[in-house]
Simulated assay, not measured.
Amino acid sequence: MQLSARAHIRVARPSRDLRAAERFWRNGLGLSVVWRHDATDEAGEPGEHALLMVGLPDADWHLELVHDAAAPVEPRPTEEDLLVIYLDGQVPEELVARLEEHGGKRVPSPNPYWNEWGVTVEDPDGYRLVLCVRGWSNSPES
């Protein structure tokens, strides 16, 4: 089996609070809930972990956020842990405002490239989303 350019990508991260994460990613950015698993089993007993998968319909990627109340993992993002979305156009201020209203925080990037070509917003767990004004082709310089 060979790796395909159409292989689905899942980015998985721990989250302190899946409700806060959902507000940011779904209500703020506009992603859809792809799948959700709560922390209880069929008998209503506490399960192993809860997770929330968000993405766009028909996209070849999704973001998975996981929380285990019995053994929580503290998110440890750095300033360089980025999820970059190439918009191929201006970043709407209404979108940035909506992200902030739903738990995000606009922050400067330590990398001047992202300050010039986009807007960086931290999610409730401290991970950074960059909304880039550039488009994407097979070359990151386009």
Rank of each mutant, 00 (worst) to 15 (best):
Q2I: 08
L3Q: 15
S4K: 15
A5V: 12
A7S: 15
A7F: 10
R10M: 14
R10Q: 14
R10D: 12
V11H: 13
R13T: 08
P14M: 01
P14C: 03
S15D: 02
R16L: 10
A20W: 03
E22R: 15
R23Q: 15
R23E: 14
R23T: 11
S32P: 00
V34S: 06
W35D: 14
H37K: 12
A39N: 11
D41I: 09
E42V: 12
E45D: 11
P46H: 07
G47P: 08
E48A: 14
E48Q: 13
E48V: 13
H49M: 11
G55V: 01
L56A: 07
D58K: 09
H62F: 14
E64Q: 04
E64V: 10
L65Q: 02
A69H: 11
A70E: 00
E74P: 00
P75G: 01
R76Y: 10
R76L: 12
P77K: 04
T78D: 04
T78Y: 09
E80D: 13
L82P: 04
L83F: 15
L83I: 14
Y86W: 15
L87W: 10
D88L: 08
G89R: 11
V91Q: 02
V91W: 10
E93D: 14
E94G: 05
A97M: 08
L99T: 05
E100R: 10
H102P: 00
K105L: 11
K105E: 13
S109L: 03
P112I: 01
Y113A: 03
V119C: 07
E122G: 02
D125E: 04
D125N: 05
D125M: 05
Y127S: 01
Y127N: 02
Y127A: 00
R128P: 03
L129D: 04
V130H: 00
L131N: 04
L131P: 08
L131S: 04
G135Y: 09
N138Y: 07
E141N: 08
E141P: 00
S142G: 04
S142T: 10
